[in-house]
C-alpha cells in the first residue's frame, strides 16, 4: 500500500506569476522588488487579498522564496492563506493575479473577496 506523506502547507507562486512580478516591478520603477501578500477584513464575503511591491519584510513576516521572488506574509494572514497558489492569468481575457486558496469556502460575485 502506497502511503503519501502530507505536504506542509505553504504559499506558492507559479513561474508565470513570478515572471510577471519581475516585469511589473521594472515597469513600476522598483526593479528587484519582492511581494507582500496578505488578507484584510472587508469585501462582500469578509476578507480580501492584498498585494504590494516591497523591498523588505516586516520583522514577524514569514518569508517564502520561489522562482526568484520572495513572498512576505504576516502571521495572521498566513493562517488564511496557507496552501494558496498565487497564479497569473494574462492576456485580453486574463484575470490578472489569482489566489487559488483552498481555505476559501465562499467567494463573492466579483471574486475579489472570500470567507473561510
Amino acid at each position: 500500500m502506497n502511503k503519501t506523506m502530507p505536504q506542509p502547507l505553504t504559499i506558492t507562486i507559479t513561474e508565470d506569476a513570478a515572471d510577471y512580478i519581475k516585469v511589473f516591478s521594472e515597469q513600476a520603477g522598483k526593479p528587484g522588488s519582492n511581494l507582500r501578500v496578505g488578507v484584510k477584513g472587508g469585501g462582500c464575503s469578509g476578507m480580501t487579498y492584498t498585494l504590494d511591491l516591497v523591498e523588505e519584510p516586516f520583522d514577524d513576516d514569514k518569508v517564502i522564496e520561489e522562482h526568484g521572488i520572495e513572498l512576505y506574509v504576516d502571521r495572521k494572514s498566513y493562517i488564511f492563506l496557507a496552501g494558496t497558489s498565487l497564479e497569473y492569468s494574462g492576456g485580453l481575457n486574463g484575470k490578472g493575479f489569482v489566489f487559488n486558496n483552498p481555505n476559501a469556502k465562499t467567494t463573492c460575485g466579483c471574486g475579489t473577496s472570500f470567507s473561510v
Binding site: G41, G42, G43, C44, S45, G46, T48, C108, G109, T112, S113
Partner: peptide, 9 residues
Amino acid sequence: KICYIGQEV
C-alpha cells in the same frame, strides 16, 4: 460606498 462584509446580499 466601498465593499463591506455582507454588501453583496
